[in-house]
Amino acid sequence: MITASYFTAAIVVMAVITFISRYFFFTTSFQIRIPPRIEALFVFTAPCILIALVVPIVFQAGLAESGEIGLLSSSYFWAGLLAIGLSVVIRQTLLVIILSMAGFYALRSFGLS
């Protein structure tokens, strides 16, 4: 049986692992040299994290109600597609965010769930 002390221990272990992994990047006594090819991959870290956070929200909102049909009537889904399309056409991130949010609220006001 999983108890509260199990969860506490798991959180402490995760905190220690996170601290150790970040400590090595910020300490001056221990230098890590990252190859340029690996460093170039860090550019994709933020978009990957954002996608990992957003995609479950987009699909859960539509699929939780009535399957594929519910997905097509979900304002989250259509606003997500709008954001993808705008980001391809417009290269300014803030403008894409503002227009995507406006599109989402417009879809919500027209009655999409």
Rank of each mutant, 00 (worst) to 15 (best):
T3F: 15
T3K: 07
A4D: 09
S5Y: 13
S5A: 14
S5R: 13
F7K: 09
F7N: 06
F7I: 07
F7W: 09
F7A: 06
T8Q: 09
T8G: 03
A9K: 08
A9T: 04
I11H: 06
I11W: 08
V12D: 13
V13C: 10
V13I: 13
V13W: 13
V13K: 05
V13M: 07
I17F: 06
I17V: 13
I17L: 06
T18C: 08
T18R: 03
F19M: 12
I20V: 15
R22D: 11
R22T: 14
Y23F: 14
F24N: 09
F24A: 11
F26Y: 10
T27R: 05
T28L: 07
S29T: 11
S29Q: 10
S29V: 04
F30D: 11
F30N: 12
Q31W: 04
I32L: 15
R33T: 15
I34H: 04
I34C: 04
P35V: 09
P36C: 07
P36A: 10
P36H: 12
P36K: 04
R37A: 06
R37V: 06
R37I: 10
I38W: 02
I38L: 08
E39F: 15
E39N: 14
E39Q: 11
A40H: 06
A40Q: 10
L41H: 05
F42N: 12
V43G: 12
F44P: 01
F44G: 08
F44V: 08
T45N: 05
P47R: 12
P47Q: 09
P47K: 06
P47M: 08
C48T: 13
C48P: 02
I49L: 08
I49H: 05
I49V: 15
L50N: 11
L50F: 08
I51W: 01
I51E: 01
I51N: 01
A52S: 12
L53N: 01
L53T: 04
L53R: 05
V55W: 03
P56N: 03
I57T: 02
I57R: 09
Q60F: 13
Q60G: 15
Q60L: 12
A61W: 01
A61R: 02
G62I: 00
G62C: 07
L63W: 05
A64K: 02
A64Q: 12
E65K: 14
E65V: 14
S66K: 09
S66D: 15
G67A: 06
G67I: 10
G67C: 10
I69H: 00
I69P: 00
I69C: 00
G70L: 12
G70A: 10
G70R: 05
G70F: 11
L71I: 15
L71V: 15
L71T: 02
L72I: 12
L72W: 13
S73C: 11
S73D: 13
S74R: 01
S74F: 08
F77G: 10
W78Q: 00
W78E: 00
A79Y: 00
A79D: 02
G80P: 00
G80H: 05
L81M: 15
L81K: 05
L82W: 13
G85T: 14
G85V: 07
S87G: 06
V89D: 04
V89Y: 00
V89E: 00
I90G: 01
R91Y: 04
Q92S: 08
Q92H: 06
Q92R: 10
T93D: 01
L94K: 05
L94R: 10
L94E: 09
L94S: 05
L94P: 01
L94H: 05
